[in-house]
Simulated assay, not measured.
Amino acid sequence: MKNRSLTALVSAFARAYHAEYNQHPVFNDSLARAMLTDEEYHNIGVQMSQGIGFFLPDFKGSQEEALRAVVDFQLSPTPLGRAAFTEQALHNAVMLGAGQYLILGAGYDTFAYRQPEWASQLQIYEIDHPATAEDKRRRTAELLPPKPANVHEVPADLAEPRWEKLLLAAPEFDPSRISFSSLLGISYYLTKTEFEQLLSVLAELLPAGSSFAFDYPDGRTFTPEAGERTQKQIKIAAQAGEPMQASYTYPELEQLLEDCGLLIYRHLTPPEITKELFQAYNDKQPEHPLSAFDNVNYCLAVKR
């Protein structure tokens, strides 16, 4: 991705919209709205509401209702669910001694700027393509509080060989310190070989006991058995210039992780995600229910 990521901007919009319009959010990203200008926020909303015929052909209602339907149906389930899953796992890892948080493909993630008290001892590294990293740096300088001292930007193209040299050169980074890595939204856009190489590099770089959280498309993603939302998402990603590249069956993923020296610690399928992460929200706001995205699983792996 040689330009700022469009999918990352839409994910920020989805997190912002959900936090703004729900009293009991699945995931409360209180700073996502500040990542977008008023014009961007408005334009994305208009484009999505006008696309209601693509997302939900039988929908009838106002433009405002159409936007809510598109966000709840298509845009927000994955950004909300995977963020909640990852930050819960990060909290647990910190309580067990993790001292570094690596956010790969950081996009417009806001954790570094809304970090809770328990994260104050972490060294946080936001790693992303230089174009997206520069765009985010501009936005945070204009719209968000000053960058905390424990936050470090690492502009790096993860598809380039030896990108990890840039991480090793970052302030305070210690490859011997137990770390937590998030790789959200990455597995979709890399080939299987590239994703395995990325995990292998991280696993070799970090010590035993380090954790790795990511979401991934399951083995039915590119088949006729894929869910309606998945089929639409594949088209959207291709049109945005960020085509999806790979999907994984559970045995494939298990073998890939084993080859990298990693073991699956937690694994959630869509029904489990809905029950664990969305049910409390759905009970409190039954008029706007959410369900986990079709064919997307969450995984937390640990280095042996």
Rank of each mutant, 00 (worst) to 15 (best):
R229Q: 12
H42S: 13
A69P: 01
L166G: 01
V154T: 08
A133T: 13
I52C: 11
T191D: 09
A98D: 00
L6D: 08
H42F: 09
E39N: 08
D259Q: 14
R266I: 00
Q47N: 08
I103E: 12
K192S: 08
G227A: 07
L166Y: 00
F73G: 02
Q255W: 00
Q279F: 02
A84T: 05
R33P: 09
T110P: 04
L257Y: 12
Y125T: 07
A226N: 11
L206K: 07
V201D: 10
M95N: 14
T191G: 13
S291Y: 04
T110Q: 05
G99K: 15
A246V: 03
L277H: 04
S291N: 05
A19D: 14
E134Q: 12
L96F: 01
E228D: 12
W118T: 07
R304D: 10
L202W: 08
A240F: 13
A89F: 04
H288K: 09
E228S: 09
Q245H: 05
Y188G: 03
A112Q: 08
Y248H: 02
Q50F: 11
A119I: 01
E194M: 13
E65T: 04
K60F: 05
V296R: 08
L75M: 14
F55R: 00
E126V: 12
K136L: 04
L6A: 10
E164M: 08
A169S: 14
A213Y: 06
A83Q: 06
E20R: 14
A34D: 13
V71I: 12
L263Q: 03
Y298Q: 02
A83K: 07
A69N: 06
S200V: 00
P77S: 06
K2Y: 05
A119R: 03
P57K: 09
S179T: 10
V70F: 04
Y248T: 01
F85K: 04
A226G: 15
F180S: 06
Q100Y: 12
L262P: 01
M95L: 15
G261Q: 02
V46R: 11
R114S: 05
R114C: 01
R266D: 11
T132S: 11
G227D: 05
L183V: 04
S210Y: 15
E172V: 13
S11C: 11
R162F: 14
